[in-house]
Design a protein around this nucleic acid. Sequence first.
DNA 1: ATATTTTACGGAAACGCTTCCGAAAAAAGA
DNA 2: TCTTTTTTCGGAAGCGTTTCCGTAAAATAT
Lengths: 338, 338
Amino acid sequence: MDYVTIKDVAKRLNLAVSTISRAFNDKYDIKKETKELILKTATEMGYHPNPMAKKLTQKRSFNIGIVVPEFINGFFPEVIIGAQEILFEKGYQVLITQSNESYESEIKNVKTLVDNMVDGLIISLSSESKNTDYYQTLIDKGFPIVFFNRVNSKLKSSKILFNDYKWALFATEHLITQGYKNIVHLEGLESLTLSKERKRGFIDAHKKYKIELTSNHFIKSGFTIESGKATAELMIKNNQIPNAIFASCDPPAIGAMMVFKENGYKIPTDIAFVGFTESKLAGLINPPLTSVMQPTHDIGVEAAKMLLDQIENPHAYLPQTIILNGTLNIRESSVKII
Amino acid sequence: MDYVTIKDVAKRLNLAVSTISRAFNDKYDIKKETKELILKTATEMGYHPNPMAKKLTQKRSFNIGIVVPEFINGFFPEVIIGAQEILFEKGYQVLITQSNESYESEIKNVKTLVDNMVDGLIISLSSESKNTDYYQTLIDKGFPIVFFNRVNSKLKSSKILFNDYKWALFATEHLITQGYKNIVHLEGLESLTLSKERKRGFIDAHKKYKIELTSNHFIKSGFTIESGKATAELMIKNNQIPNAIFASCDPPAIGAMMVFKENGYKIPTDIAFVGFTESKLAGLINPPLTSVMQPTHDIGVEAAKMLLDQIENPHAYLPQTIILNGTLNIRESSVKII
DNA sequence: ATATTTTACGGAAACGCTTCCGAAAAAAGA
DNA sequence: TCTTTTTTCGGAAGCGTTTCCGTAAAATAT
């Protein structure tokens, strides 16, 4: 591929390259007519400013790195699409890496992105319990970073969060007001704040309605369907069947629901279900699963906006936190009387 | 962020920048000891070659663009991960764009990627029936492109394909040998070759077993769960229930299965199901869905390899086509006697 | 009319790197 | 020992831009 350069345009019009440059970056003094002439013949010749040269002189890569734990499930892709929309519009390129839920590969990804001189990073941590020194060093250097979804409270940085506590409380409250009193919470990974927050919401909903909770009401579960299945099988084996299950996210709820159904339990009559972070499956399975829907697209949009704000105003930078709201999508899995 | 440059390293060691450059690109004559010294002090100083400058001199962006119709469902993300793995390893960056199944936004994406001087493209078309002139022009210019999954047969270009015909034939054959004779095919979008190929496999399996097919055995369906639901509802309403359904992809099969289940049909006794392009849900729903699994990860790997091959040997370029194999994951939805 | 300001553009350096050319130093050959 | 070859490095040009500085020409003021 042979590209047309600024010199070619200059030669053609018998102008200096600086004039051509001025025509494309309208902040300098240039006569209106010549500018129009330049732009016209430039497009005729098929000239596009070489992004590499531009980046070199401007000492900016116009690249933004996004690091997520995975992007097989729908959640992160949706966030990424949201971020890309506004980043692309502003002329930024987006480099996406996935850490595969591994701290090591996450740090490695971040380092390569920084070495490749991205202008900023949007990150959802694979684990919040690990060492965050590297991130802190970057932040202290003034490197623009926005965290979302999975963050570390110690890091003094901009964050886009979801009000996990509030919506877990709402979701639990929904179950309680539906008449379910003996509710078990399937907890998420302990290393994540969002798990703790959802648990806290679950607990406070019970406090509000003055319902006692024992340790039997909490079962540690993962993020997978399999873990939900295993939990349900154990419950059935021990014959400890609660009225309802509130899961820290959809997959374990779905897994547990599948097992209970297979064992002849009626849903939601015998046992009700509420999930979290609305997955594609929620509305599709039978019965459809009540779940808290997060504003995935908006999370991406807000993260991108915040990052650009930080990049463009490097001096007046103050770490901000935006907390977004969601929706409780109430479906058959948790509604006692239809 | 202030970066250490090659000049800083040169000054520190009282060497010429060219020597430092040689140390980092070991194709030139340089003494082993000085090279080691340079590399050592360079890492000490925290020097990383500026990718923008490198790209400018080498007239290569080391960027690869990937264009997919969507990446909410698992298929394309898995392909992308496969491609990224080998691209990253070779020092390439990956720019991912999604066309949202729209021809216009696909072309727009491709054009911005080309303007940003990506060294090559990996593309899955949003629609194969639209104008492909732009792609042909690029290919004629020698621009490296590899198509996968959704391709246009007219384009003389490298392709990574799946043997849709063969595996559709296998899948249908499986149903026939299980004893299902009256099988309906839910066809995919007509504009895609893969739909035609799967249909052809379905037909030829019937020919092989000398089973008659009428137009009643073909129902046009989309790629969604909803379309499958609608089709099933129509079948039930018209009381035209086949022995089995072979769908062009999983979602319509799942949708149809849900409706039949809700209406009291036993699966696979009353009606059996086979899907295509193994989705996450296939193994999770009840009963688990038999489906053809595509080697998503390998598709990405092979596409990336082929593209790099094309980039690195621009002259000896010959369009290749790799056809990959899959697996028929036989599950309960299609097994008559367990 | 001339003096002064403004406008519009050219020239050139710089961004950080690669790579060609040439030459000193070292090694090998005579 | 002197010549020839090889090794190792320095100097400089060039990649395609941006941007600073300077200056004719045009516009305005005197």
